[in-house]
Amino acid sequence: MKGLITKDLLGLKQVAFTMGFLMVFYLFLGFMNMKDSGGGMMYFSIMAMVINVMVPLSCAGYDEQCGWDQFGASFPVSKNQIVASRYIVNLLVIGFTTLVMIVGNIIFAAFGGSASGIFGYLIPIIVSMIYIAIMTPIIYKFGVQKSRFIVIAVFLVPAMLIAALGMFMAGNRSEDSFPFMDVIDSLSSVPAVPAAIGITVIAVGIYALSMMLSMKIYKNKEL
């Protein structure tokens, strides 16, 4: 499995330029807005999420292009190990972007920017894990090309439904009230640490379930 993880990490060379560009771009945006409340970190959080989500998709695309899946499956490793290694690499990428966020936060704080709380780090991690958890089994099932559209549909349809429902609810109340504001308000009253632990446990659970589902799909996949 060590070789599979090494391969994926070396494969990041393919997206290194894009990753570097995104980091510089969002670092710049962060500096420009660091005096705002959560300004600098907000941009870094976006950067982390974009990279965390983009990397697995790009790597799967490159693998598909060169036929790596077929070759990798001829190795003395089980199909479960092949899938597990991909999930581990995704976590390593999330770890890396979190490290970048921490360094960025220290830099912003040193230049007088607003420091971020625990949720500033946790939200990008959780969102990325859940997105990857949904996306990866779809990629294993349908391949990268088809998955792009399916993933868009998976996220766009619920988002549009929520937006439509929100607009409907807003229409039935005052003009200015933001949809679901009550829900958001009620969440803000939950103590930070238990909330952080709770959503982390949920995200880890979803990630583990996703890995098991991917293993099942991959076991029956024709390579």
Binding site: G11, K13, Q14, C66, G67, F71
Partner: peptide, 9 residues
């Protein structure tokens, strides 16, 4: 295989 299966990079 008929083609090299490693990433081209």
């Amino acid at each position: 295989f008929d083609e090299i299966k490693f990433p081209q990079i």
